[in-house]
Design a protein around this nucleic acid. Structure first.
Lengths: 69, 69
DNA sequence: ATTATTTGTCAATTATACTTGACATATAGT
DNA sequence: ACTATATGTCAAGTATAATTGACAAATAAT
């Protein structure tokens, strides 16, 4: 289950996966895995991503991650 | 950093920590720890909690978990 | 006083989020 | 052709979310 909302919000800010990872204090692979969607980040990381992209949890993570795989 | 929004949303539905845990498929201790607030649940669990309580991520988890400790 | 339910908290284990390091591919620049 | 950046993915390790089991204290009921 890809997270396309995240991918497009990141593209809208013209950030690479690596850029966003640095802003959130995680590795590039972690951002890649979240966008790819086959796992389940912690809420604090979700919040960090939202802050970096100027979005809220509901905008990026509501009804996506849950219909898993 | 206690999550009082969660605690009060649960109280509003007259559910015990154990009840909510069962609805979410996790242990009572996990719900207790999240309300107590000293850790960082996964977003899928947050979503399960929101669904059980009829709330959204923004309502229960936005700007709480992040000002950690 | 006692019985039952809820909550708080501990210790030890298991599952998994997240890391580092590396390699392949694709695209664009020079 | 070469160089650089962005992405996708793998394997092995570390950090921590979540588990089970147990016990104590508080509340409410009888």
């Amino acid at each position: 289950m890809k997270n396309l909302k995240l991918k497009s919000a990141r593209a809208a800010k013209d950030l690479s996966q690596g850029d966003l990872a640095a802003l959130c204090g995680v590795s590039r692979q972690t951002i890649n895995a979240i966008e790819k969607g086959d796992y389940n980040p912690t809420v604090n990381l979700c919040i960090a991503i939202c802050r970096a992209l100027g979005k809220t949890l509901d905008e990026l993570f509501w009804e996506d991650e849950n219909d898993e795989e």
